[in-house]
Design a protein around this nucleic acid. Structure first.
Lengths: 186, 186
DNA sequence: AGAGTGATGTCAGTTGCTGACATTAATTAC
DNA sequence: GTAATTAATGTCAGCAACTGACATCACTCT
């Protein structure tokens, strides 16, 4: 037993998600989030660097999924290793669809949050590029493949979020990859 | 003759660039920028939406260059229209290299500025996608080509900025495009 | 028992940013 | 030619994000 209710970070996350969904990101103050979590504004900033960060706090796992899949992929062309990462992500997202949609609705409704998301996505592209270089892929191929992976992920994700027909993320990625090869061939 | 010195926006831009370069983005207050420009903090925010925006204020022209080049490109595969946009941008950047490098140094030194830059770049990718759809390119090919254009631009730009051997932006783009085709072929 | 640790609270302060209203040269309306 | 309007700026008051310094106190280690 500790002096305070445990799980402060979790409570802050929940409170923030609820309030953002109820009233919109910039209609909610940090003090309100903290109050609903039974904590103080100052404590909020000890757990999250800023007001937006809580929506991206588990970004490390996200990147690791891609990187691990790339590292574990059998030898072959870089885009195939990246593809392994894409499928790993799709498998992770698919069962969490309701949560992911809710979160994305919040993000898409506010520019600051979109900025932050793009920063995280660019970090993903760079991490994939590094993972490819670790497999011996030279520049500029590694960076191009990393960013191409991001292109496929990002456009496929948008289609998956918008889909109303229950299509799987995986099938959208498969289609996008095929289409990309046609487009890139010029 | 008007009541005040003309060119307030220009003065604010210059003052900000100087101060950001001298002391770093977040060591400079808006009040200081305004004072150096002979204006008031309140006036600063009438010209620029926020402290970062001045570094991206001419982003409209930038996007327009790509979009116009895509619209004007002869009929052909989408990636060739995008390529026309890339070369147009390279021609625009090349003679302004010293300024571009200085600006990029500031941006790369601060996360908030990188976020904003990525937002502008994603707007570029979306604008290119729209321009391609206007030429009759279907989805998802249009989005994939637009974001692939961004991939080539962004990675080539980074190499051009880092280059110490005086290589031209155009030659880097040509090389990146060739490499991209190899990578995407899988 | 005493010392130390770690998560939280308290408080005061800076700064980005906004709304409401005032000012006044230049312009336009009559 | 005077009056009304406009446009760019100034003044002032205030909110909310974020930070640093220091206090608290259950728990743990020695």
């Amino acid at each position: 037993m500790s002096r305070w209710e445990p799980g402060a970070q979790e409570r802050l996350s929940r409170a923030a998600m609820e309030l953002y969904a109820e009233r919109g990101f910039d209609e909610v103050t940090v003090a309100e989030i903290a109050a609903r979590a039974g904590l103080t504004e100052r404590t909020f900033f000890r757990h999250f660097g800023d007001k937006a960060e809580m929506l991206f706090a588990n970004g490390g796992n996200f990147v690791a999924m891609f990187v691990d899949a790339i590292a574990a992929a059998p030898p072959g062309p870089p885009l195939e290793a990246v593809t392994a990462g894409l499928y790993a992500a799709a498998a992770d997202f698919e069962p969490r669809r309701p949560f992911v949609l809710e979160r994305q609705k919040i993000i898409n409704s506010h520019t600051d949050l979109m900025e932050r998301e793009l920063l995280k996505l660019s970090a993903l592209a760079e991490a994939m590029s590094v993972a490819l270089r670790d497999r011996g892929v030279a520049e500029p191929a590694a960076s191009l493949a990393g960013w191409t992976g991001l292109t496929v992920f990002h456009t496929s994700f948008a289609r998956w979020v918008a889909a109303t027909d229950g299509r799987t993320f995986e099938s959208i990625i498969t289609e996008s990859l095929a289409e990309l090869k046609v487009v890139a061939a010029g």
